[in-house]
Design a protein around this nucleic acid. Sequence first.
DNA 1: CAGAATCCCATTCGATACTG
DNA 2: CAGTATCGAATGGGATTCTG
Lengths: 244, 244
Amino acid sequence: MRLQIATMKLQKETDERNSSERPADRGPHGRWYADACGTAFGLEILGERWSLLIVRELMFGPRRFSDLRSALPGISAKVLTERLAGLEANGVLLRETAPEPAPVQLYGLTRWGYDAEPIIQELGRWAAASPFHDPTLPLSPVSFMLSLRTMLDHRAARDMQLVVAFTIGTAQFTATLAGGEMPVERGLPGAADLRFDAPGGPSLAAVFYGGVRPEEVGVTIHGEAARIAAFTGLFTLPPKAPQI
Amino acid sequence: MRLQIATMKLQKETDERNSSERPADRGPHGRWYADACGTAFGLEILGERWSLLIVRELMFGPRRFSDLRSALPGISAKVLTERLAGLEANGVLLRETAPEPAPVQLYGLTRWGYDAEPIIQELGRWAAASPFHDPTLPLSPVSFMLSLRTMLDHRAARDMQLVVAFTIGTAQFTATLAGGEMPVERGLPGAADLRFDAPGGPSLAAVFYGGVRPEEVGVTIHGEAARIAAFTGLFTLPPKAPQI
DNA sequence: CAGAATCCCATTCGATACTG
DNA sequence: CAGTATCGAATGGGATTCTG
């Protein structure tokens, strides 16, 4: 395998194109709609393949490279690296070298990055109304928790107050329902009113949205029966769109 | 780096995934996040380059091929054709052969397609808070009208009732403000409380969002001065996001 | 003008191998 | 673990041409 020696010489010229200056060279590649519309600009930043899904996975706190890789089935290390760099360059996320016991590299959203949640929610809400939609695919724990936030019936929840613990595979979340809002954090609470344990995202989705009985899909729920019913009743998918 | 000899044998099995049939094989290319998340599914449909901007341009009613081409600087006929076909296959738009005097081909959103407006709005609102953003680029008339709907202060507008006519280049719109909402239609109203005439989208954006005086950018406004001020005051850009 | 079909090269992607 | 390097294959999309 010697021949590679010669292969690298041509590399050089390929990247001169990038040297063209743009105010803040966002898309690593030639994207760039010549359009002042905010939507178009948003697409420059989040519209590349995978970008928005990466932001989604960071929505409940910083993650490491390998967390992201395993949460995004099919993404390659190369593309993930590129996207992280692009998002960082655009101020959506930051690379934090958290010196815990073992110094780990983390990627976390900036405040503005967290502000992208409504985009993710609107897109998800809209897509859920599509006639086609395969709910059997893998669903990351973050996706499921985000879907709960999206589908929450704020009005119906206004007078409920609950601390709910979720264990989804190895991921743990605490949802705190109060005043019609439901912030979600990573980790388990000291005391919870309800506890959901599930092997993965799809099983919980089946229980919450598909009316499947928990034991059929390996989900166990702890808590007062009435509260369980009241809680799960707060989340409903939108009706399918008409075929016109 | 020695032995790569054996590397290519495993290729085969990689593409079997694609052979699985999907209801309506959307992305002409291998897109397809293996992900049940609604957001990921939405990205399958709207996440390709140009797709969402095409939807945006159709937001106030059907348009023809050449309308779209000129509203989307840089798109090629081939790509536009492909995207229109993809969006049609996914139920976002329909191709209507309206037999007017001269039988013209029109593309119009389905009801579900129109439901995508909140996605466009959230993306635009979010992007407008970016530190980088070049407002000097071309802005299509539709983009501007959509931005008004996005930036409208619904609360402040609740008690206002106005019919406002816009002429932006050759495009004409009627905005009907009432009850804190402001639907927009193509065409001019019989009678208007206010009338804006502008050479293009950017000039109006300068007036509404940049505090520029109309005459500086070729915009003329007709109507009662107090009403003009009250109306234009309803629309404000979000504050820039902090740099963290 | 609307849009389908062809050509063709630059870019991009995913897989694999490699490195600190 | 956190990437980087490289390669083959697929895709993107601009330009051009053709048709009704």
